[in-house]
Design a protein around this nucleic acid. Structure first.
Lengths: 203, 203
DNA sequence: CTAGCAAGTGGACGCGGCGTCCGAATGGGT
DNA sequence: ACCCATTCGGACGCCGCGTCCACTTGCTAG
């Protein structure tokens, strides 16, 4: 029918929803681009809706139409990366994907998460507002994954252990280790590998 | 020549600092009492300076004289409990105090922290504002303690493991497990015991 | 006992972000 | 070219913050 010309080739989250108006799509792209910049250079926790609106050249109500707060904008920017990781966990090559023993898969998951945190720390910090972290769909996914690995390895205390094992991946813990403790991503990943081995192999 | 020493550290309702005026002491007691109530029944994270001032029957500037924000008031209320725990860790009976093998002491520390969280969760949540948790003196103490235990047990990755092992004690992780996951303090403590054993005994 | 002074107090003020509302503009189908 | 639904964005009221300053209170020296 209507061959819609996709003129927004540089658009971060390219595709626009069916029936979305052209100006809406354009503004959404502007908002996301501006937000990405703002979160990246500055304190991600203190980015305000007004900041984003001004940087995007858009009214504040336009922002509120789609996003309730800065955190959800950061979340939108993170989504594609998280989805990608989820894909690799479900159907990628081992040890991250299926096929490796649970302890190795857990270690690989830790390594992948460290990678994600390292590459997008500002966004992750911006997306984390208090207990909101646990409410994300992503947390539920990590949770289900790790829980399955624990069950597969016949670990004790499966249900209670899951959140304990996910706790070190909290963004501010990572930030603290990187910036206050001057630890490298490799050191952090190594410690998490030790943890995975201790819980799933030893003990 | 009054050698007055302003103690900006709010100590809980008890004695008053030397040279502190009677009205100041009375107000400080009022403030702490009011704050304790407010943090306890309501969302600890949304307690505001104005709330506390109103509940205490005190002007806002009076609050700001001693405490920069609600979090530091919660911290003041927590201090005595944390000090007590620190005392038991340093010179109390084993397994929490010295004398037990590291793995058992770590498990005992976890149990004691779960106890503290369980009894004072509202205060702990109120005292935790973002990355402020790591800046607390208390965190440094827990950190040094766990680090010593790890070193004593000749664990690998000592420095990087410390913060990983402390992460599950983050107040919002605990709250999530209790309120969303409906887990009992015993279950949480058991999972942490498993963790301690896995890292220090096994692995 | 009184007077003086410094510490303590609290109401008022300006600032900035929040979230919403409504008149204006814009887009896309007819 | 028209029309209506959707979207836009400036403006508004609200609330909490943090500070300032004029007033009050407690302590102490004379």
């Amino acid at each position: 029918m209507n061959g819609r010309t996709d003129r927004l080739t540089g658009d971060p989250l390219g595709d626009r929803a069916p029936g979305e108006r052209a100006d809406a799509a354009r503004n959404r792209a502007r908002v996301l681009a501006a937000a990405r910049t703002l979160f990246a250079d500055g304190d991600p926790r203190s980015v305000t809706m007004e900041d984003i609106a001004r940087a995007a050249g858009v009214g504040r109500a336009t922002l509120y139409r789609r996003y309730p707060d800065p955190a959800s904008i950061a979340q939108a920017l993170l989504d594609e990366h998280e989805r990608d990781l989820q894909q690799r966990m479900m159907s990628g090559p081992p040890p991250l994907g299926p096929g490796a023993p649970p302890a190795e898969r857990l270690a690989a998951f830790y390594a992948a998460m460290v990678d994600l945190l390292e590459q997008h720390l500002p966004l992750v910090l911006g997306a984390e507002v208090g207990p909101a972290r646990f409410a994300t769909g992503a947390y539920g996914f990590w949770r289900a994954h790790v829980r399955a690995l624990l069950a597969q390895a016949a670990a004790p205390q499966v249900d209670a252990l899951v959140d304990v094992l996910l706790a070190p991946l909290a963004p501010d813990v990572y930030q603290y280790q990187r910036e206050q403790r001057r630890r490298t991503p490799e050191q952090i990943a190594a410690a998490l590998r030790t943890l995975a081995a201790g819980v799933l192999d030893g003990g």
